[in-house]
Every structure is written in structure tokens, then in C-alpha cells.
Write a protein that binds this DNA or RNA. Structure first.
Length: 191
DNA sequence: CGCATTTGACCGGCGC
DNA sequence: GCGCCGGTCAAATGCG
């Protein structure tokens, strides 16, 4: 259990140890185990429950890893959630210059503005199909930093907020503790 | 005054 | 080509 800087009762809950990707996924996923729950378990051990610690995520490195990152989670067994770009070797896709880092996770939260330690500027809001809830688009406020994130409520369980980070911060973040999610290195820290 | 947010317009990819 | 859909732009507006 964790809480965000401004959070009350904001908990990341990922209980399924072996989430299964949806059938429509490409075969790469089936070979790649989901490591995220393990790392969160690590942090649970690190910090006692009665002492909720503020934290944030930060993309740190992914440059040596050529393939696009993927993240698949089945949270709580009540439906699957997929984020990530396919790394098919279609020639047209090779044209793209940047390999985007993408990580998504889901938190149980009453508020949608989760303070993760970075400064964000909202730049869009859309209603997405098959969901009554809007999707909000944010960009990192730091000049020159291209990192974006999307925030939306879970369709199946509105008590959850799905946050998706895209990109790597070009500036140092305020956090030091390092861990990995499916090849993407993140960092977090107490404040 | 200098920022952030709001919100409809705009755009590009994709499927038909 | 056309319309849908997800993502972004930008002018107006709000706020400290």
C-alpha cells in the first residue's frame, strides 16, 4: 500500500500474481512475465503499513533497451488492462525515431489528481468510447521535457484511476529509489 | 501579470 | 474518400 503526496486512501492494488494478457495480444506477451506485483511486494516489505509513505514514479532509463516497453496487468481479476506499443518489425514502424516508454498502473483513489512529485500541465480532455468517464491529458511542465500522462477512471470499477505515463523525463526527478517494471526502470523515494 | 485550465476545433491514422 | 476515434492545439478564460 502506498499513498501519493496529496493522497488520502490512494492505494495501488495489484493482487494478481500471474495476470494473463488478453487473447488478442501478440505472442510476445505470453513469454514475458509480469514483474510488477513482485516489485510492489518488495516495497510493502520495505515500508510498514501503519506508516504510509509518499512516493512517485519516475522514468529513469530505457535507452539501452531497443524494444518498446509493454505492460500488461490484470488487477484484482475483474478485467484486463493493456498498455504499451507493439514491437512488430513492420518496416513503417521502424521509421519512427523515438521509442516511447510507456507504463500504466491503476490506483484506488477518490481523486484523479494524484501528486506524483512532478509538475503537470493539462492540455486536453476527451470522452473515450465505451466509457462514461473522460480521459485527461497532461504534459510535464518542465521546459523541454516531453513526458505525458493520461488519467482516466476504470470503466469496470470507477473507484480506480488508471494512470499512463509516456516518455522519459529529460530532467532529474526528486526521487532515488530504483526498481523495474517490465524492463522500464523507475525510481521512487520517501520525502 | 504570469501562469494554468477549459473546451471546441483541428489533425492524422485507420477501417470500411 | 469519408467518417470515426484518439490525441493535440490554442484561444479564451480563470486564478493567484
Amino acid at each position: 500500500m502506498f499513498s501519493f503526496h496529496n493522497g488520502t486512501n490512494n492505494k495501488i492494488i495489484m493482487t494478481d500474481k500471474n495476470p494473463r494478457p488478453p487473447n488478442s495480444l501478440d505472442s510476445n506477451f505470453t513469454n514475458q512475465p509480469l514483474e510488477l506485483p513482485e516489485y510492489f511486494k518488495f516495497d510493502d516489505d520495505q515500508w510498514p503499513d501503519d506508516e504510509p509513505e509518499p512516493f512517485v514514479f519516475e522514468h529513469v532509463v530505457n535507452q539501452e533497451n531497443q524494444q518498446a516497453n509493454k505492460f500488461v496487468g490484470d488487477f484484482g481479476g475483474s478485467g484486463s488492462y493493456l498498455e504499451g506499443s507493439s514491437s512488430n518489425d513492420v518496416s513503417s514502424e521502424r521509421e519512427k525515431k523515438e521509442v516511447t516508454d510507456k507504463v500504466a498502473f491503476k490506483t484506488q483513489s477518490e481523486v484523479e489528481i494524484l501528486d506524483d512529485g512532478f509538475k503537470w500541465r493539462k492540455y486536453g480532455k476527451k470522452m473515450v468510447k465505451n466509457s462514461p468517464n473522460p480521459r485527461n491529458y497532461y504534459r510535464c511542465s518542465v521546459d523541454g521535457c516531453q513526458v505525458k500522462k493520461r488519467v482516466e477512471r476504470d470503466v469496470n470499477d470507477p473507484s480506480y484511476v488508471i494512470t499512463t505515463y509516456v516518455g522519459t523525463h529529460t530532467h532529474p526527478g526528486p526521487f532515488t529509489r530504483i526498481f523495474k517494471i517490465c524492463g522500464v526502470t523507475l525510481s521512487m523515494k520517501r520525502d
